[in-house]
């Protein structure tokens, strides 16, 4: 069992120190639950919509690690793994990324950095105007098992979670920031879509999907929340309310993956069938 806390908080735009202080308070509140992994949404330290302000507020992974290590030490005993989305600057390249990091605080430090590959640049979104794309999806080893990170739209393309699953991921962490739209039912259409996606990806590959979704109002755009965890059978194990700050605390039982995958061996079938389709995949990609 690996105890997780998925924390959806509303950051104040651009107020990095205050938002990290808010995280510190949230960790202090969670200490009694003893989570081993805490998962935060996309762009938590700054808020999501920054336009050109990304350049003023982006952090290096090292700067973020330093700040998180300092705050975690004030409220936590023992190691803590933390997944967090943030705007990252690469000082050598002069490039900016929408990134998420897996930190092992009180241990190895930065374990993995994922840079968002699919930058939404349509409708209300304008990421590629300000950010560079990442170019890889890879699983990595944590203290507990093997995991991958996909950020928001990354996850809306099933190819990314397929790569993560083939690379051995048992848990896919998905920090996201999703402005509410489509009020046709009790929950916004984008929240319904997230729920369906998470369930179907989890069931297709027999793994856990952990979605941490930002809340707060960003100049009229209401970030929707609705963080959730989907089980390897595609059931919802926990789901946060929309629009309000909340934490989901639950244990992920990684020992359940082998029997669930044995019952529904989609990933094993994929491993056998995918090589047969590789030529077709190459053909259609090269024709783009």
């Amino acid at each position: 069992m690996v105890r997780h806390a998925i924390v959806q908080l509303a950051p104040e735009k651009g107020q990095i120190r205050r938002n990290l202080a808010r995280l510190e308070a949230a960790l202090a509140e969670l200490a009694e639950d003893r989570p081993q992994v805490v998962v935060l949404p996309e762009a938590f330290p700054t808020g999501y919509f920054l336009q050109g302000g990304v350049r003023e507020l982006a952090l290096t992974a090292g700067e973020l690690e330093e700040a998180l290590t300092a705050l975690y030490r004030r409220v936590w005993e023992g190691p803590l793994d933390l997944v967090i989305g943030f705007y990252e600057k690469d000082e050598r390249e002069g490039a900016y990324y929408n990134a998420a990091a897996y930190f092992e605080l009180g241990g190895r430090g930065l374990v993995h950095l994922h840079r968002k590959v699919f930058l939404p640049t349509y409708g209300v979104f304008d990421e590629e105007r300000y950010l560079s794309r990442g170019g890889t999806v890879a699983a990595f080893d944590t203290r507990f098992g093997r995991a991958a990170i996909l950020i928001c739209e990354d996850f809306w393309h099933s190819i990314t979670s397929t790569i993560a699953a083939l690379d051995g991921a048992e848990v896919i962490y998905v920090p996201s920031a999703s402005p509410a739209r489509g009020f046709f039912g009790p929950r916004p259409a984008n929240v319904e879509r997230w729920r369906e996606l998470a369930k179907s990806v989890a069931a297709e590959h027999g793994l856990y999907v952990v979605l941490a979704s930002l809340v707060g109002s960003e100049a009229g755009k209401g970030m929707s929340g609705g963080s959730l965890v989907a089980s390897p059978e595609g059931r919802l194990l926990a789901e946060a309310p929309v629009f309000e700050e909340a934490a989901l605390v639950l244990d992920l039982d990684l020992d359940r993956l082998p029997p669930v995958r044995y019952d529904n061996p989609m990933l094993a079938d994929l491993k056998s069938g995918l090589p047969l389709l590789l030529n077709d995949l190459k053909r259609v990609v090269e024709a783009l």
Binding site: A180, F184, G185, P186, P188, G222
Partner: peptide, 24 residues
């Protein structure tokens, strides 16, 4: 295309919108 909305959900959303946009 659907123009009919879930008005209780819209009302809740706009109430939060007003609170948050005034607050900051």
């Amino acid at each position: 295309e659907v123009l009919e909305l879930d008005y209780p959900a819209v009302a809740d959303y706009l109430v939060q919108f007003l609170r948050r946009e005034l607050a900051w």
